Simulated scan of single mutants.
Amino acid sequence: MLSVFCSPARYVQGREATRFLASELQRLGFVGKALIIASHSPREVLFPVWQTTFSVCELTFEILDFGGECSFSEIARGKDEARRVGASLIIGVGGGKVLDTARAVASELCLPIACCPTTASSDAPCSALSVVYTEKGVFEKCLYYRRNPDLVLVDTSVIAKAPVRLLISGMGDALATYFEAEASIRAHKKNVVGGASTLAAATISELCYRTLLKDGVAAVAAARAGVVTPAFERIVEANTLLSGLGFESAGLAVAHSVHNGLTAAPETHDRLHGEKVAFGTLVQLVLEGRDSGLLNEVLGFCLSVGLPTTLAELGLEAMSMEQARAIAERAVAEGESAHNEPFEVTAQMVMDAMFAADSLAKSVKAGECV
């Protein structure tokens, strides 16, 4: 099996990076008309900046307001609008679902794509895939593309003004990167782009975890103040670039499968992607039989930054055995990344690990020893 590593063609991060969007696109040789797919709040904040930065280049733009869910109907709407305005480039501006939609539109129309996340809530911006949900928010499938984005531009001045919960959720998503990479590598399973992991991907995944432990609490403090600090910049990079490169080029495992299973429970629909992945990470570590020192370290990190660690915090305090089985069955469905572990994973194992992780977290929160 060949080793494969992938990444966006260009990654740009820093204060007021949006001012350089048009010049970065010009640097990559793009001209014509861009369709900007954007959610409402970023549009309100960034429209004046777009007007200024695009006025001095050979690019013009039109805007499509995002409908709220990365669904097949929303992707079709984006394609129709891109054709209507004669777009030669797609730009996604907003959270993970906006960027997933923009990537899907660009891929299906064979157009270049620039991703401009306005939150650091997931590792979606750098990837060559989209997670598609039903219009009711239930996970449907992943779409995989031939290449990663042409540009990822991360404006930390904008991200610092986003709700703190989104940054914390991004840390939950990034938390899984190292442990899922380890499992996939131990099992000699293919990564998301169809090859074996490289040393670079494995190292990036570990660096992602170490950065979370080192800078997570300080970054949350900066986010609460709405300011950009070195720790904040590093966590934004960990959530966006390190986690993005790590999960895609090293692999996924149980943590994201548990997330996908949890989306089948309506009670979790108001919980963010990374919040569910964080709990999925705890489930994976319990299922793998990891030692108490590591479990305490991961639980301690989650508690220190405010990530959910119990079923009740995901809205599932009264989860029945039937509902638990439905979640677990979805987590081990054919093609799910739960099967990237170096041993067989069954629905019963996932069920047991969910209840055990919940119990363990309750004990730690109550001050009991693990």
Rank of each mutant, 00 (worst) to 15 (best):
S243V: 05
T198H: 09
G274S: 04
A187Y: 12
V254S: 07
T203S: 15
A223Q: 14
A187C: 09
R186T: 06
K276S: 01
A265Q: 14
A223Y: 01
E288C: 13
V286L: 15
F279A: 02
G293L: 11
L282V: 05
A221I: 13
V283E: 00
L282N: 12
A250C: 11
G300V: 04
A326H: 05
T309G: 07
E182Q: 15
D215N: 10
G293F: 03
G289A: 08
A264N: 08
K276I: 01
T211K: 00
A250R: 09
V305R: 08
V283P: 00
P308I: 05
V228K: 09
V236T: 07
A221V: 15
T268E: 01
G246T: 06
I185H: 00
G244S: 06
I204A: 01
S249T: 02
L316D: 00
S257D: 01
A324E: 12
N239R: 02
V254N: 06
G261E: 00
E237I: 01
M321R: 15
G280H: 13
T229G: 05
V193P: 08
R271F: 10
R271K: 14
V305K: 02
M319E: 10
C302W: 02
S197H: 03
S320C: 04
Y209M: 11
L311A: 06
E233Y: 09
L212N: 10
V193E: 00
E297G: 02
E237Q: 12
C302I: 12
G280L: 04
V193L: 03
T281F: 07
A255I: 03
V258C: 04
N296Y: 06
I235S: 00
A264D: 03
H269Q: 15
V254H: 07
T240F: 03
S320R: 07
L294S: 08
Q323D: 14
L294M: 13
T310L: 09
L307V: 15
A255H: 05
G216T: 14
